[in-house]
């Protein structure tokens, strides 16, 4: 009988470890993997992937009713929302400063400072601060946020190809982690990591967001780009070995399958459950492609993702299959 020799791959590279929080606040470390996701038999996976819950600095009227109900009155203030998210088991709070968007209030630096301070005050979790994704406004409010939270080691994003210099510089000056976001393309992701590094951000202070495609809406592109980035990082390419963050909730809940309950085919099934699975399957698929942080919206998805991560991390420390 032929003998089975279990293939164990030797990976020359390792994913950089990135620490968020600390300095009196809880600390979350992501990255550090020496093998592909959850293949504990092959190499160390020192940190479990983290779950961030998405919180906005304004009441998001455009959110699906299903989501709005479950968060209820917490939606009225970012501090209350963050607090509830913390209670529901978030590892991180992802505060999106959407009120700075020209069409959602166009608030500026002062509001950003205030909101960030309130969230930092309300929870002891590490915080990710995301801009409204309008380049000039991002620069304005993210700079303010970076200064307001000096030393708290936030993750701040997104650095895009157009404006990475300003935000990266603010991260260096105030001791934060920079998030670089690129549109689902492996080379562009790597190029931005290089450019951010060239500005002087150290490798342990960069996260990359390769852009999330939700289930049925480009998931396969994100999935493969992330697998490739992770493989490249493990093969020793330091400029793709950044931990990855995925804005799963935002993308999944943008889609009809998650938002709409009426006027859709009956073959889509029951709306509430479908929405949660839409977010949940997107999250698990991307975790298995290498995501280190998933940003989620629905508490049930958070619960499911947490339980799944527990099970996937269960093999940690064992060295056999």
């Amino acid at each position: 009988m032929p003998a089975v020799e279990l293939p164990v791959q030797k990976w020359p590279g390792r994913i950089h470890e990135v620490t968020l929080g600390g300095n009196g606040r809880k600390k979350v470390v992501v990255g550090g993997e020496a093998t592909l996701p959850f293949l504990h038999f092959e190499g160390a996976i020192p940190h479990r992937p983290a779950i961030a819950i998405e919180v906005h600095d304004r009441n998001p009227a455009e959110w699906a009713e299903n989501l709005r109900q479950v968060w209820g009155s917490a939606l009225k203030s970012p501090a209350a929302w963050a607090k509830k998210a913390s209670e529901l088991g978030a590892d991180l709070i992802a505060l999106r400063l959407s009120s700075a968007h020209p069409e959602n209030g166009n608030t500026g630096a002062e509001a950003a400072k205030k909101n960030v301070a309130q969230v930092l005050e309300a929870v002891d979790l590490p915080v990710i601060v995301l801009g409204p994704e309008v380049a000039e406004k991002d620069n304005e409010v993210l700079m303010a946020a970076a200064e307001a939270a000096r030393g708290q080691r936030l993750a701040i994003g997104d650095c895009m190809e157009k404006n990475y210099r300003t935000i990266a510089a603010a991260c260096i000056a105030n001791g934060h982690v920079a998030i670089g976001k690129t549109p689902i393309e492996i080379n562009l992701a790597k190029q931005l990591n290089i450019l951010i590094s060239d500005v002087g951000v150290s490798r342990d202070a960069i996260l990359m967001d390769p852009t999330t495609g939700a289930l049925g809406y480009g998931l396969e592109y994100s999935y493969s780009v992330m697998e490739r980035l992770r493989l490249a990082g493990l093969q020793g390419d330091a400029m793709t070995a950044m931990p990855m963050i995925c804005t799963v909730g935002e993308e999944a809940w943008r889609q009809k399958e998650a938002r709409v309950s009426e006027g859709v085919p009956t073959t889509w099934g029951q709306a509430k459950e479908r929405a949660i699975l839409w977010e949940g399957i997107t999250a698990i698929s991307l975790l298995e492609a290498g995501a280190d942080i998933v940003v989620l919206r629905h508490p049930r998805s958070v619960e499911l993702a947490r339980a799944t991560i527990d099970k996937l991390m269960a093999g940690a420390g064992q060295r056999s299959a």
Partner: peptide, 20 residues
């Protein structure tokens, strides 16, 4: 078997098995 479970799974399968 429930549509709300099968539909996302079939969608995932379609995504993963699409020829890149």
């Amino acid at each position: 078997f429930s549509p709300e479970m099968v539909y996302p799974l079939l969608t995932l399968r379609m995504n993963i098995y699409t020829d890149p």
